[in-house]
Design a protein around this nucleic acid. Structure first.
Lengths: 337, 337
DNA sequence: AAATATCTTGCACACGCGTGCAAAGGGTGT
DNA sequence: ACACCCTTTGCACGCGTGTGCAAGATATTT
């Protein structure tokens, strides 16, 4: 095993000694835009190469005020979209020199401790991807020492103390609603997820608003306590069982794909109905399963790559106000609606 | 935002001053089994509480030889089972005081740099969950400075320089094979994933062996280049299209669920056949989707919680040899076979 | 009560690198 | 050859904590 027998201690001093320059010059060689002559940098780098030296980011973080480390707080591992988000985020971060601390928010009460935990590692920013965020958590965040930015990813927040990087839910939902209207559906059912205080999605609200504006009535709406397919399947079944065909919705619009997949399962396997002929379904996120031949889900894809890159821009930029940004995604039309 | 205006610098010295003890006593108060009187510890803790002090793990890592930090290298975010593994691992780690650095291995060539990257943060161990591990990677690992343990999680490896924590694939596959035999299936097709050099799964081999032992012939076998449902669906279609019914397999045994889900999609939607009546399907992992009414997949569940806890045991234990361990999981029988 | 054993506390030094500034080096124009 | 400017290099000090040991305080024994 890499016991790293003693050879773990290759420090900048060693390289300096081998090269005949000072330790500071060695470290400068590894800094992106440090003032150092190309010649000595090359000399240092080759010596570092043979000695196996790499700067210790841990020590660098201690010495400076930046760590190039962010914490990623995740509370909901049941939603497959989380996996996609994590991939995109870590890809953008790592390819631009940032490391990611993955913090599993064990349960609802654990968010504040998790935040504190992250701060103990001197992270430059904390990213929340999930639903657990509310004002209580924010208070905890403010109590936590030393971290500069609190970023809410893929969720809107009007809290002035956070930076929200999200898709424009309102525009997206309008596009979805227009599509649904254009298809001539008459009796929608909206399936919403859990409601949180600070991090709104505005999807349900916008859909209701559009529908009400058009027909003067609110669409039927139910909500699920977690973004979980199994749970959504249950709620859908409880809502639709025993209904005469005429009372069934002709389209079910879901706040995201995790819900939509469960809804589809219920429609097919427990209600024995066809999609989209009997009931159409629309989702949000475009998770991988949405494109499988089993689901062929019409859904809305968030520009996660752009959002992730913007996030890194924010990290690298100065502390400014009003860094919030909304992105426009794309409606992906498949056979489910 | 928590600009942490100056109040970020609450250090052990501040607490020491406020309490009237030395800095070392303050830090001792936060150590689990340090020699300190309960009285002073309480005094210190309450002062720390009001001042908002928490030990800086970054500095602690620098000063000592341990960081309580592990790197988790992930290369394949398309397999939904990864999400489950990450949840279980981070849960076990965090609840026992370990932090996790999530490193996205961007592409095949990136594994070595990723490993190096992790070592720059002084991780105590590196965990690989994925398929990217081969001898080349191991060589890179050994070249990387300072990290004590290289753990292959959920995959067997006979490499003496690594610690492998996995399910007993051979026993598991035997159980699966016995089940398949007991059900009277005659014409199996085995769908394997990509082959790697150092981290074997032994599933395909064991299944072949059992089958050959029973009937004297090898079962038909195909392999997919990635653990990806879409790709598996393609391979299954290419393999089975245009076959007369008599030439179709009556059961398809898949190396894992990611493959099985794609196979099921192909059987149903492209071959228009029924499961399990026409073709039965068996998977491995028990991903969340396997239990959905859509799939009802018969599969093998790994004891991920036990495996994760053992992993932390290994982290906390001394550097020993032969820390490898195999776990026994459970065959979950559903309607797909 | 003295001596010893046990527990508790303090401290010098080290961990590896960043910051800001001063000194040295190299080049240009007159 | 000189003064000047710009580039490149060196350095003192600090970041916040761990380690191992020695000194001090307290408890136990005879």
């Amino acid at each position: 095993m890499p016991k790293s027998d003693g050879f773990e201690n290759v420090t900048a001093d060693d390289v300096a000694a081998a090269t005949g320059v000072s330790r500071w010059t060695v470290n400068r060689a590894f800094k992106k835009d440090a003032s150092i002559s190309p010649k000595t940098r090359a000399k240092v780098m080759s010596a570092a190469q043979t000695l196996g030296y790499v700067p210790d980011l841990s020590a660098a973080a201690l010495a400076s005020t930046r760590s190039n480390l962010v914490a990623l707080l995740v509370d909901d591992f049941t939603n497959p979209h989380k996996l996609v988000m994590m991939e995109r985020l870590t890809r953008a971060l790592r390819s631009r020199g940032w490391d990611t601390l993955l913090v599993n928010t064990l349960d609802r009460e654990d968010t504040a401790p998790a935040l504190l935990n992250a701060s103990q590692r001197r992270v430059d920013a904390t990213i929340l991807i999930g639903v657990q965020f509310d004002d209580e958590v924010l208070a905890a965040a403010q109590g936590a020492r030393r971290f500069r930015k609190l970023i809410i990813f893929a969720r809107s927040s009007s809290n002035p103390d956070t930076i929200s990087i999200a898709v424009d839910d309102e525009a997206a939902t309008r596009e979805i609603a227009q599509y649904v209207l254009g298809k001539g559906y008459q009796r929608p059912l909206y399936v919403a997820g859990p409601r949180t205080v600070s991090a709104h999605l505005l999807r349900k609200e916008t859909f209701q608003e559009v529908w009400h504006g058009k027909f003067g009535v609110l669409p039927e709406t139910v909500s699920v306590d977690r973004y979980d397919s199994i749970m959504a399947a249950e709620v859908a079944y409880d809502t639709l069982r025993d209904r005469p065909v005429s009372a069934l919705p002709d389209v079910i619009v879901c706040e995201n794909d995790a819900l939509a997949l469960g809804v589809i399962d219920t429609i097919r396997h427990r209600l024995q109905l066809r999609i989209p002929d009997d009931i159409a379904v629309v989702g949000f996120d475009d998770v991988p399963a949405a494109s499988s031949p089993n689901y062929r889900l019409t859904t809305y894809r968030q520009p996660l790559t752009d959002m992730s890159n913007y996030l890194v821009d924010v990290l690298e930029g100065p502390d400014a106000t009003n860094l919030d940004r909304k992105f426009i995604g794309r409606l992906v039309i498949r056979e489910s609606a």
